[in-house]
Amino acid sequence: MAKSELRNQVRRLRFENGELTQQQLADKVGVTRQTIIAIEAGKYAPSLPLAFKIARTFQVPIENVFQYEGKDS
């Protein structure tokens, strides 16, 4: 899959939240660990509901987790 224009802070936030493992985060938001790996690596852009679930897990606004880096139209 192509690298997305979405930058994310999932890895940093995981460590700031009690060193949450990828599996623990995956279980909390209802996806597989591979999906978390792909999101962290920027290889997969999550759906809006999943992005909100991740942000809610870390108790931060969604823009603190994901930043769009593409060109403005």
């Binding site: 599996q23 995956a26 279980d27 209802g30 996806v31 597989t32 997969y44």
Partner: peptide
């Protein structure tokens, strides 16, 4: 089956 509660998700 894979470990973890979810084995098939929106990416799959």
């Amino acid at each position: 089956k894979d470990k973890g509660a979810v084995t098939f998700d929106e990416r799959d």
